[in-house]
């Protein structure tokens, strides 16, 4: 009798305690979701002319969805491969612009100059322009904006 009671109690305790513990530690198994943003048809981009695209990125934050206005400089050498630059200068984060006559990106804050591939030509920035991951799905250009500024290889 005592053993039966102990056994049943242990079973109840295991189910309740186990599921409670699972609930508590469930954030440990949460995965970062990939948030790809559609920037439009690939046909809209002309080869070697960087285009600044504004977009709204949606991020799931547990039960809430946060929207963020963001943008990217998009460049394609051939209409098939795409590069998306983080629009913040790698020096102190100023927004830079494309100068079509010089074919360079110019940052107004401390007169940095980047070439069309994002390499530093002159000025204080410590590294080339940061890039967002890109992919083409069904003729649409998708980017994954990352706030961390991962410098893609």
């Amino acid at each position: 009798m005592a053993w039966a009671i102990a056994g049943i109690s242990a079973a109840i305790g295991a189910v309740l305690g186990g599921s409670g513990l699972g609930y508590f530690i469930s954030p440990a198994f949460a995965k970062r979701e990939e948030e790809w943003v559609d920037l439009g048809s690939v046909k809209e981009f002309k080869a070697n002319v960087p285009l600044k695209i504004d977009f709204t990125s949606r991020k799931r934050d547990a039960w809430a969805t946060v929207e963020k206005r963001a943008s990217a400089w998009v460049l394609t050498p051939n209409g098939r491969d795409f590069i998306a630059f983080d629009p913040k200068c790698t020096h102190l984060g100023c927004p830079y612009r494309w100068d079509d006559s010089q074919k360079k990106f110019l940052c107004p804050c401390h007169t940095a100059v980047f070439d069309v591939d994002g390499r530093v030509v002159s000025g204080p920035p410590p590294r080339p322009l940061d890039r967002f991951s890109t992919k083409v799905v069904g003729g649409r250009l998708m980017v994954r904006p990352s706030s961390g500024g991962e410098a893609a290889a």
């Binding site: 599921s19 409670g20 699972g22 609930y23 530690i25 469930s26 198994f29 547990a62 039960w63 809430a64």
Partner: peptide, 26 residues
């Protein structure tokens, strides 16, 4: 995982049921 605000209460309860491990059971 619950937020007592009209914006989030319903969604946070749904979140418990769909995303949290054992959430439906608890």
């Amino acid at each position: 995982n619950y937020v007592p605000s009209p914006d989030h209460a319903y969604d946070s309860v749904r979140f418990i049921g769909s995303e949290v491990y054992f959430g439906r059971f608890i």
